[in-house]
């Protein structure tokens, strides 16, 4: 089966994030669903306003790209951040990262990751506490960094990764995503964590698997040539692990992706020149 239409692709990607959203709801409670409602509403509203202001047909909002960005954002954001922060991240994503550049297909930066990173920089106090139903505890990643073995061994940590892989696997089977991107991303991440002598469990923590299937595979912001894509995705995978260990932010996949977006055209050019 081959799905060609971009609207159908977008809605399939949105549907494929559902297992990951369900796993997050199971782990962190109904806050995730609230968050999803807030981000989807804010993203859709912003999309409609931007389309209206540019004099484009409002029906273009049905292409599903805003919903996909909102779903990815919901997974990335800590549950129970104030609704204003979630809405601001969605508005940054749709307004500043997508419509300033002329809408879907033109944005050089992944909207969801750009919105997340800008919200992270703007409201850092909300991003360091992940609360699950009133019992507050630091993020599993922060615990693992401190060397808490309990946090690192609990099977619950593997649940979001498995759910994301289930949804992402379907995307790959339907050929909605280029398989080179997740593969190169994982190779880069595994090679870096081996070079840094990290526990293999760090690879399934903190949304790395989700990013491998849903964020790095964004065809608009990735490199365009085949060789460039290998280079781009491996670079992002390596950076995600390196920055997580040595960077100053608690999790850094969003920043790794954005740096990858900055360097994606350079990857294309470098591969082209090297082949010559």
């Amino acid at each position: 089966m081959k799905i060609a239409n971009s609207t159908a692709i977008m809605w399939s990607v949105a549907a494929a994030t559902l297992p990951a959203l369900a796993a997050a709801t199971y782990l962190y409670g109904w806050g995730v669903c609230q968050q999803l409602f807030i981000t989807v509403s804010a993203a859709t509203l912003c999309e409609l306003i931007c389309l209206r202001w540019q004099g484009k047909p409002l029906a273009a909002a049905a292409d599903g790209s805003a919903v996909v960005a909102a779903c990815i954002l919901t997974i990335a954001l800590p549950p129970y951040v104030p609704w204003g922060v979630a809405a601001a991240a969605a508005i940054f994503a749709i307004g500043l990262a997508k419509h300033c550049y002329g809408g879907l297909g033109n944005n050089p930066f992944n909207p969801a990751m750009a919105g997340y990173a800008l919200a992270f920089i703007s409201f850092p106090e909300y991003f360091n506490a992940w609360t699950a139903d009133a019992t507050s505890h630091p993020t599993p990643l922060a615990l693992a960094r401190l060397g808490d073995p309990l946090a690192a061994t609990t099977w619950l940590l593997a649940l979001p990764a498995l759910a994301a892989a289930a949804g992402g696997g379907v995307l790959l089977l339907l050929r909605l995503a280029d398989w080179r991107l997740p593969l190169a991303f994982c190779l880069g991440a595994v090679a870096t964590s081996m070079a840094l002598a990290l526990d293999w469990q760090t690879l399934i923590q903190g949304g790395l698997v989700f990013a491998a299937f849903f964020v790095i595979t964004d065809p608009v912001t990735a490199a365009t040539s085949r060789g460039g894509r290998w280079c781009y995705a491996a670079l992002v995978g390596a950076l995600a692990i390196w920055l997580r260990q040595h960077g100053s932010h608690s999790d850094s996949i969003a920043f790794a992706i954005l740096i990858g977006n900055v360097l994606a055209p350079l990857c294309d050019l470098a591969v082209k020149q090297w082949r010559r």
């Binding site: 550049y101 990173a117 390196w242 920055l243 960077g247 100053s248 969003a254 954005l258």
Partner: peptide, 19 residues
């Protein structure tokens, strides 16, 4: 747009601080 774009690039590179 060039300035907005430079802003996004600066945001991306802020992730490298201290790395």
């Amino acid at each position: 747009l060039a300035v907005i774009n430079a802003g996004w690039m600066a945001l991306a590179f802020s992730g490298l601080a201290g790395a």
